[in-house]
Design a protein around this nucleic acid. Structure first.
Length: 526
RNA sequence: GAGAGCGUAGCUCAGUCGGUAGAGCAACGGACUUUUAAUCCGUAGGUCCAGGGUUCGAGCCCCUGCGCUCUCACCA
């Protein structure tokens, strides 16, 4: 019953077979299907910028500039040329290379769109114009292949800027068929697992990661301009300090010793300030063994900056400078869209104290411990045997943080939840700390750094009631306390979540859109 | 961790009441020397996530498992 279909018409190949066959044909034609060094090509973006060099020349040698693209919308180029008189288009000789992203086969004429990381351009390939040898090679091309091209930059009759092919150089065969043109690859899992396909074929993906690179470079520039020095601290720690988070654990065999992947950069940078490195920063990866969400990836990038003789207010100025310059670096403006929301990054950012905001959003006096406790209970929080500041902090996170549109500096935190922070001179219950919030997301965190070794030792020893060790930043690090005994200058310190900053500046609502290779479950073997 | 949804051709998806598998793109063959996601004619392409169950009959209903997505919780 199925005999006829199978025996007769097995001529149709599946996409993979046909690509393999063409690979053989390319080799048979004397080309290396995996290409080789290809010198002196111009970036397609630069080639497009040379459009003005394309001229219309009459037989008597009179030369005309072409109409603008807008003018060609109304009058097609062929009609414009007819009015000028008999002549032809000329333009510069160019060489380009790129991936084939679109292929229109019109018989003895092919239109091929190639793309490099600066742009896209159409190739005009005519059988008569390129000659038999190139034409045979053209028959072996598939979407996704990488080719080089020599030819003259001109325009077609419809005005499309094109390279009129004279010589094709085969550079690399693509054996897997690309995703459907224009629809692209949409499955989020595949986009992340096979990021190369997402980058190669989905619009805007490369630009987003280029923006990330520009933002990071801008941050380094801003800091270096202010004479901060970048250092590289250890990523394997024997004590996972500087933050409250569950660490990844690992083991060193030769020393037979447990180690933790770092959860923060803080404590080593401060040791450096004891050593006289007065302005230091590190921009690097930290690891936290916790949940994965649109705002959380187990490894993420963090900036921490320390400035001797500064305080948390100098860190506010620095934070504003870092963000403003990053916005300029990607050519954005202060007012931007983020998902269905809007952000206005015009400086200075709003500043309000923790207690002010608490009162504003809860209607409860933050200094009235009993009232706060009652509110917390009504919100479903455990209050028995827990420190009043921890209870207050629970309520703050629940009722205030999500409501903060920002950018807003929340200042002056309850001292007991800030074991690494200097207390206010006139009020030991308040810590000189701020967090920067944008649409409920914590973007930065800064302190006037605690440099009193005795107080630091005491705070490390004080585990707040009702707080698990993982939830506490109070983790004893004797060597760090010893370092403070050797004199750390009064200082301001700042941490910025790089991934979250990039999310906000590139209109990305998921952290997985701005991390090239986010952590995914291991692929199940088939 | 809880709830909801999804898994069908290389890609994007449809599949009615449970009746034996569909489209567009990609591929293959053909026509076309100025196309714009080219167009037109033709061909081929399926372990319907896996396993079990109900049924004369399952892509569809039921159970179990796997994977993913979204929301919530957790995440200084």
């Amino acid at each position: 019953m199925t005999d006829k279909t199978n025996s007769e018409s097995s001529s149709a190949e599946n996409p993979l077979e046909s690509r393999r066959r063409k690979l053989e044909q390319i080799t048979a034609l004397g080309h290396d299907p995996w290409g080789h060094r290809f010198d002196d090509r111009s970036m397609i973006g630069n080639i497009r910028n040379r459009a003005g060099e394309v001229k219309y020349v009459l037989e008597d040698g009179t030369e005309f500039d072409l109409p603008t693209e807008a003018e060609m919308e109304n009058t097609p180029l062929r009609d414009w040329a007819k009015e000028k008189g008999k002549g032809s288009l000329t333009g510069p000789q160019v060489r380009a290379a790129g991936r084939i992203v679109l292929h229109r086969d019109k018989g003895k004429l092919h239109f091929i769109d190639i793309e490099d990381w600066t742009g896209k351009i159409q190739l005009f390939v005519g059988q008569k114009q390129v000659g038999e040898e190139n034409w045979e090679l053209i028959q072996c091309l598939d979407l996704g292949d990488l080719i080089g091209i020599d030819g003259m930059l001109r325009r077609t009759q419809t005005g499309e800027l094109s390279i009129f092919a004279e010589k094709i150089h085969f550079l690399t065969k693509t054996l897997d068929p690309p995703p459907a043109k224009h629809v692209g690859l949409t499955d989020p899992e595949t986009r992340q697992r096979k990021r190369y396909i997402d980058l190669a074929y989905n619009e805007g993906v490369r630009d987003r990661f280029m923006d990330r690179s520009k933002i990071v470079r801008s941050i380094r520039n801003t800091l270096e301009d202010q004479h901060f020095v970048e250092i590289e601290g250890p990523t394997l720690h024997s004590i996972a300090g500087g933050a409250a988070a569950r660490p990844f654990t690992t083991h060193h065999n030769a020393l037979d010793m447990s180690l933790f992947m770092r959860i923060a950069l803080e404590l080593h940078l401060k040791r450096l300030m004891v050593g006289g490195m007065e302005r230091v920063f590190e921009l690097g990866r930290v690891y936290r063994n916790e949940g994965i969400s649109p705002k959380h990836n187990p490894e993420f990038s963090m900036l921490e900056v320390y400035q001797a003789y500064g305080n948390y207010e100098s860190m506010m100025d620095l934070t504003e400078a870092v963000i403003s310059n990053a916005i300029k670096a990607i050519g954005a403006s202060d007012v931007m869209k983020w998902g269905d929301k809007e952000i206005n990054f015009a400086t200075p950012f709003e500043r309000k104290t923790y207690d002010e905001l608490f009162a504003e959003h809860t209607g409860v006096d933050p200094t009235d411990t009993e009232a706060v406790k009652t509110l917390a209970s009504s919100l479903g929080f455990d209050v028995e045997g827990r420190h009043p500041d921890v209870i207050k902090s629970d309520v703050f996170e629940e009722k205030v943080e999500d409501a903060l549109i920002g950018p807003i500096f929340v200042t002056d935190y309850p001292a007991s939840i800030c074991p690494l922070t200097k207390r206010k001179k006139d009020n030991p219950d308040v810590a000189e700390r701020f967090e920067l919030f944008v649409h409920g997301m914590e973007l930065a965190n800064a302190y006037t750094e605690l440099n009193d070794p005795d107080l630091q030792e005491k705070l490390f020893e004080t585990q707040l009631e009702g707080m698990s060790e993982e939830d506490s930043m109070a983790k004893m690090d004797h060597d760090f306390v010893t370092a403070l005994r050797n004199g750390m200058p009064p200082a301001g310190g700042l941490g910025i979540g790089i991934d979250r900053l990039v999310m906000l500046l590139t209109d990305s609502t998921s952290i997985r859109d701005i991390i090239l290779f986010p952590l995914l479950r291991a692929e199940s073997n088939e």
